[in-house]
Amino acid sequence: MSLRVLNGFKFSSLKTPVHRLDPRAKFLLVIGIIVPSLLFTNIYLLVGLLIVQVPLLMVGRVTKRWLQSLRAGVFLSALIFVVNFFTGPLVNAVALTLRFLLLMTTFSFFFMTTSPDDLGLAIDKVGFIRWLSRRWLGYPNALSFTFTTAVRLVPTMAVDAQTVVDAQRSRGLELDKGNLLKRVRNYIPILIPLLLIAIRRSLELAEALEARGFPGKERRTSLFELRFKPVDYLLLGISLGGIVLSFWVFFHYHVPTI
């Protein structure tokens, strides 16, 4: 399974209506799709849920990336199919494979169309997280800040990782030779510098943070604010309705796989 499947979860910074939806509404939509797909194994339902997301993906202009990640996830889906093929009826295998693809698609859709900033802002608004953050780290905005900083650092750390690999290879380190034990040990000269660079960077960032007044007052004002638009309320309504409906049907009827 190549790393290309991760591409299907990376944020694509476009400005489509789907991107502009409030992340909290989108997240509830994700839940609204996951709940029925976990509760039921009806193939028509699963296919339906999958198809319903396609227009969303198209409006978000992330269809190509989604298809690429599906292709890369073929291995895992095949594995799921095969395992279930030998442990149950064929229709089950089909349903479960569909469910896997469905879940992958939903999360992929979410992460491709929601910017880490917006996610951070959304997290910052969740009361529980603010409480946890205050109890655990001392400041209500600390947890969401940790999240956005982590995301911000990913590309930077990736560059550093490549540089460390280059530097150590230039000293004769060969990462693709030797038995398993040797190969694992060969990663020590990569991991230690990376770790230390990460620590040093964190310290420098912390200094810079304090130099800009962090954490400041208890109630930080944010320049950007998440606000629900009418379409978000619509989405929230539909998702909530779908979730409630799913549970009600689940407890009152038995829905067959086919």
């Binding site: 530097a167 290879r169 000293r171 060969e174 230690i192 510098p193």
Partner: peptide, 22 residues
């Protein structure tokens, strides 16, 4: 040739020593 082989003759000292030290 591999990087290891070429590095025997061509040594690069990278800019940031922290990328090497372990």
């Amino acid at each position: 040739k591999s990087v290891a082989q070429l590095s025997r003759k061509v040594g690069i000292v990278f800019q940031n020593p922290d990328h090497l030290l372990f």
